[in-house]
Design a protein around this nucleic acid. Structure first.
Lengths: 233, 233
DNA sequence: ACCTGAACACCGTTCAAGT
DNA sequence: ACCTGAACACCGTTCAAGT
């Protein structure tokens, strides 16, 4: 009998493995994700996964890049600040929706989607006319902000597990009163109160973009508020 | 026979366990640190550690705070920018020396040393005269920068394991040429070349502090380069 | 090519037992 | 109070075997 052509015996495909792994990571976090649990969820032997994935590292690299694909790359429009701002906001949203991604982002080599994202940020800054060293440093400032800020934010959100954040903070406040940390107590109360002074993420990004624009702008004023310690190569 | 008073049978003390754990984490990273390896290194049964430490989480929380103690808190001097800058630089140095700490910093509740650090930053900004909402947001911007930037930096450093960074990058360059990522290729070459435009960490911090100072300063100019999207509560 | 279970070398932690 | 080894319920991954 001649071998039958490839009719769907393959119930598994890499993309399906990755998609299911993303869902599982969203539920449990990457640390709790295991090859065994993933296989069980897919109704398949553990070792079957290894036909589609080199090892767990490869799997995680794959799902990180899969999520990064969801991020809107900066548009190629005139207004570079808006292009960067919109893309950063998109990245912020995506990283909050998949809270395990930001931590992995910093630990791993970039996959194809992240490389495209990096390229687009650099292209935008270059097109804005910033000089070589400002592109270099601005790029670092912006990407640092996107993932660094989000990691910090997620830390606040999850540090205490899933205990209601308010309960946590009020319990926390008592211990702060006991120790001698008045400013910190005020700060935590601010977190509990109005909760929000608005778009924190955008505010800090604004600080950075303002700084870049000022360091670059043709209409520099003579005050000494320009970033210091900046040497041209 | 009456029970002998507590002569040194205790070869183990919490502080010694933590100190040894820091050393082991510095060598292997926190992920590779295990209770068994730590016990072996101390010449002691694994379960003996549990007399001095509630569990692995408690251990890691302990060693993180032990390292955070090394950071210089901002001085209570006139010049708040310098105070913040020096303390941030100290934190940066410490986090680079113990590369596993920054990642844990964001995942855990602060211990006593980190609470003192937080308090001192807030006190410094308050003393500088920034108004309530600027203290709130400035604090987040600064701490975000300290750990976020450092995490990013360590990521670049370690993403490829211990392969010489240059080898990695040159191999990387080939794949970048293959894909269509010209700006990224230029950026990587900049990393390889002069290597450094100076103090990256301080440059970005400068951008942030400039922004805070401008948003606050009595001598505001009328240009629209002040941070936008900033609403008073 | 794709899937599989048994086995190996690891984990953190519980438990009953020793001093 | 402090220390201990055996045991339990997990890991990722290798290997020999099946289709």
């Amino acid at each position: 009998m001649p071998p039958r052509p490839s009719v769907p015996k393959r119930t598994l495909i890499r993309s399906r493995v990755l998609a299911e792994a993303v869902a599982l990571a969203d539920e449990l976090g990457v640390d709790a994700l295991s090859m065994r649990k993933l296989a069980d969820r897919m109704g398949v032997g553990t070792m079957s996964l290894y036909t589609h994935v080199a090892n767990k590292d490869d799997l995680v690299e794959g799902i990180v890049d899969m999520v990064v694909q969801e991020i809107d790359v900066p548009a190629a429009t005139e207004d570079w600040r808006r292009a960067i701002g919109d893309s950063a906001a998109s990245a912020h949203r995506v990283l909050l929706a998949h809270p395990w991604v930001a931590g992995e982002w910093t630990k791993r080599m970039p996959g194809p989607a992240r490389l495209r994202f990096m390229e687009a940020i650099l292209a935008t800054l270059t097109r804005a006319g910033l000089d070589e060293s400002l592109v270099y440093r601005g790029y670092h400032a912006i990407t640092m902000h996107i993932v660094g800020f989000t990691i910090q934010e997620l830390g606040y959100r999850s540090a205490g597990g899933d205990a209601g954040l308010d309960d946590l903070a009020t319990g926390f406040l008592d211990s702060l009163a006991a120790a001698d940390l008045p400013h910190l107590a005020t700060h935590v109360r601010a977190h509990l109160g109005v909760q929000d002074y608005g778009d924190e993420f955008g505010f800090v990004l604004g600080l950075l973009l303002d700084g870049l624009q000022r360091a670059h702008g043709p209409e520099r004023d003579s005050s000494d508020t320009r970033p210091h310690g900046f040497g041209h190569r």
